[in-house]
Nucleic acid binder design. Structure first.
Lengths: 211, 211
DNA sequence: TTATATACAAACACGCATGTATGTAAATAG
DNA sequence: CTATTTACATACATGCGTGTTTGTATATAA
């Protein structure tokens, strides 16, 4: 065999992750063997065990590749320069809407992200060594709600929405709406019920709040 | 061995389902063997294979026991006598709120339901012979949205909510909200973030719509 | 240039879960 | 009262997935 350079090794590592994603999405995590993943990637189980300690580790790596960048984008979309820029295309409410739209857009355009979400939502079990991922998800949700609340606070200050409810309440409701939408969007593989009208649903949700 | 009567046999069948639920919730569906379930139920795999063709069949039976009654309750809560009874405690909006509250209540009070939901949401993979369950869930959602829409139509007629949006739009938004809430409620095993304030969240969601 | 670490492939050992086939005692049908 | 079916327990056959170990050719460091 031909020993690989560091770059080539990193390439196989990525290749294994990609192969895993495609087999996972097809057969589910627990019913795919590392042998199958290796074959799909054009390597042997030796390579898989070299780059990852086990299947769970591989799954973690797969998830991180998609989730971590998404969290970064979130800050940009919801918080950065929230107080500056008084022009109407940058008001807090529109930014919230754009954040939601943008996330759906990523799922639409980026197959890697879409497949990973599908796996995490419907093709894996949060059990044993994977149970703490649940905690990560929950704390992630908390930070989303926090950021939404900050945006809604600005929206209240600028009197874009009715003061009937608090920013926290608006934020919670929006988060639950979006959480539901993501689940439905991912599960709606035909695209008939949710994927095709996600933009409309989001716009409606925000519009409901506008004065 | 002592041959059982029909009643006793039905009892062991139920016993197996209960055992399965408790082991599933603990170790996840794919990592629990039928041997383990049998042991937990105080029988052997022979009994399990007698009552169910395989693990998937058992999982289906478990799900049906919880989901089917829930669908029945839904009709009662949202549709029955929707046009009669003009008293304010039975207005369409309150009925929607009560339906949501009632569903959460069932999860709270009924361990069997709670565990089953936890399994279906975070401890099983929708793959292979279980993929059609996904379709069932989706079509179920459709009928929920339909019923919500009917209730919201009445609410619009009675001018309880603002005519800014259509009944269908309100229904979709409420369904996504509730879908998100259910997911979060189930995942929030500590109860800190969602379980403790579910009632408030629901009330807020409905209140937002009130004129 | 040589020694060592790297990046895997190949081989080994092991248990465990599944499905089926057979055995069996008592309930039930007739 | 007898025959048959029921409701399982037990035993058997089989395969598959995992983790580890060993082998090896080459990149890389010195």
């Amino acid at each position: 065999m031909v020993r690989k350079t560091k770059q080539e090794a990193e390439q196989t590592r990525q290749c294994i992750i990609n192969a895993a994603r495609e087999v996972f999405v097809d057969k589910g995590v627990s019913k795919t063997s590392l042998e199958e993943i290796a074959r799909h990637a054009g390597v042997t189980r030796g390579a898989v065990y070299w780059h990852f300690t086990n299947k769970s580790d591989l799954l973690h790596a797969m998830r991180d590749q998609v989730i971590l960048p998404l969290i970064d984008r979130m800050d940009d979309a919801l918080l950065v320069n929230l107080d500056k820029e008084q022009n109407p295309h940058n008001d807090p409410l529109t930014r919230i809407e754009n954040f939601l739209l943008c996330t759906i857009q990523v799922l639409n355009d980026h197959q890697e992200t879409r497949q990973t979400y599908e796996i995490m939502m419907t093709k894996c079990e949060y059990v044993g060594e994977f149970e703490n991922v649940m905690q990560q998800i929950m704390s992630n949700c908390s930070s989303i709600v926090d950021k939404l609340e900050q945006a809604y606070t600005k929206a209240l200050e600028k009197q874009l929405i009715k003061p009937k409810l608090t920013a926290a309440q608006y934020a919670q409701d929006t988060h639950l709406f979006f959480s539901g939408l993501l689940h439905m969007w991912v599960k709606d593989t035909d695209g008939i019920r949710y994927r095709n009208q996600a933009q409309t649903l989001i716009h409606t949700h925000i519009e409901m709040r506008r004065k």
